[in-house]
């Protein structure tokens, strides 16, 4: 995937539902879920390569905010409560959100 425009706070996104092997920093419970960009954190070396001492190109890192209703459906304690997590750009889709 080539470079793309920086994502803006408030923008709706969906986390990719992938299950690659290796050192992944996107928790399973967030994959396939929709949220909004909370803030951009800047570029960081991709831990998926860095963990293995491989050349690790920088990727934009974002904080993404999800509602508990989105994550847990009817099982959520309070649907309006939120969960924020740091997600790398290559795990984020903007068109499907």
């Amino acid at each position: 995937m080539g470079p793309r425009k920086m994502l803006e706070p408030g923008q709706a996104v969906r986390i990719r539902d992938l299950s690659p092997p290796g050192h992944i920093r996107t928790p399973k419970y967030l994959r396939g879920k929709t949220g909004v960009i909370e803030r951009a954190l800047g570029p960081y070396e991709n831990p998926e390569q860095r963990a293995y001492c491989l050349p690790a190109p920088e990727k934009q890192l974002y904080r993404v905010r999800f509602s508990m209703a989105e994550l847990w459906g009817d099982a959520a304690e309070t649907g309006e409560d939120t969960l924020d997590a740091e997600i790398y750009e290559h795990w984020i889709d903007t068109d499907a959100a």
């Binding site: 960081y44 890192l61 309070t78 409560d81 939120t82 969960l83 924020d84 997590a85 997600i87 790398y88």
Partner: peptide, 15 residues
């Protein structure tokens, strides 16, 4: 309280 929003922060990467 019900009126308080709870925000959970999952420290998943570099922060």
């Amino acid at each position: 309280p019900e009126t308080t929003t709870c925000r959970v922060h999952d420290s998943t990467a570099d922060m």
